[in-house]
Computed example of a mutant assay.
Amino acid sequence: MSLHQRILNDVEGNILSGLWPPGHRIPFEHELTEQYGCSRMTVNKALSDLVKRGLIERRRKSGSYVTFPHVQSAVLEIHDVKLEVESLGLDYAYRLDERVLRKVTTADSARIDLPGSGRLIDITCRHFAGGRPFCLEERLINLAAVPEAEAEPFDAVAPGSWLLGQIPWSTAEHRIRAVAAGRSAAQALDIAPGAPCLVIERRTWSGGAPVTSVRLTYPGDRHELVAEFAPGANG
């Protein structure tokens, strides 16, 4: 592990564990430089990454501090698909299509940042609303981060719901795209090949370690994203 990643993980761990509560001053850069025996640039890069993640804020001539929680966030929340369906007043159902335990391949590198010696669970499943396909879920789970997943069959509970109850996530990345349904997705969602779909790709980390990568595909005419926001300090 690089010194940059070690500093990032250590500071993030102190924050997420509550050891460093909101308002706590992070050690000055020169103090971290001495503690880890590294360059000022390495420390600065780690702290800059923590600022981007919203965990700390820098105050001019004062130092870096753990941020206070915000009521509103620019980051999409992680929702349980079951709750999405139930919020529509429709009956929910879940079906596991495939669960494969395997080693990481080079093709996985674009989806989840794991070494070739890593092991993961590759899951394909579907969520239904009122008897109709609502969402196709294709998920990779890092067994190094969540070893308990190896014993979970996921035949009765969806992996997203299970993960939310098992491991806290510290960072998430969303990518949202409009795509034309391929043959397999069209068959799974009971739509015509080439029909418009909304795809949400999400990766989550806990303490700097990748936990899961999921691709959620929704029929374009049955799903929408709604974000609530308020004017910020910049108007």
Rank of each mutant, 00 (worst) to 15 (best):
V211D: 02
A209I: 06
L189P: 04
G208W: 05
P219D: 01
S213Q: 14
I191C: 04
P219N: 01
A209D: 06
G194N: 03
I200W: 14
D190S: 12
L189S: 10
P193K: 05
Y218D: 02
Y218W: 02
A195N: 11
S213I: 11
R215E: 13
P196S: 12
V199G: 13
I200F: 09
R202G: 04
L189E: 00
L189W: 00
T212W: 11
L198C: 02
G194I: 04
V214N: 06
S206F: 09
V199M: 15
P219K: 03
E201I: 13
S206E: 05
V211Y: 03
C197F: 13
W205P: 07
L216M: 08
S213E: 14
V214E: 08
T217C: 11
A192R: 09
T204M: 13
L189V: 02
D221F: 03
S213H: 15
V214T: 09
A192G: 10
S206P: 07
A192K: 12
A188E: 07
A209S: 01
R222Q: 06
D221I: 01
T204H: 00
R222D: 09
G194T: 05
V199T: 15
R222F: 05
L216V: 07
Y218G: 03
D190H: 09
T217I: 15
T204K: 01
A209W: 00
T204V: 14
T217N: 06
E201H: 12
E201M: 14
R215I: 12
P193W: 04
L189M: 02
I191E: 01
G207V: 04
G220W: 03
S206T: 15
T212A: 12
R202A: 02
R202I: 12
T217Y: 11
P219H: 00
S206A: 14
C197S: 10
G208I: 03
V214K: 11
G207Q: 07
G208A: 07
S206G: 09
D221C: 12
W205V: 13
A209M: 00
T212L: 06
S206I: 04
A195R: 11
R202Y: 10
T212Q: 14
A188Y: 08
A195V: 02
Y218M: 06
I200E: 14
T217M: 10
V199F: 13
A188I: 00
A188R: 10
G194K: 05
D190T: 07
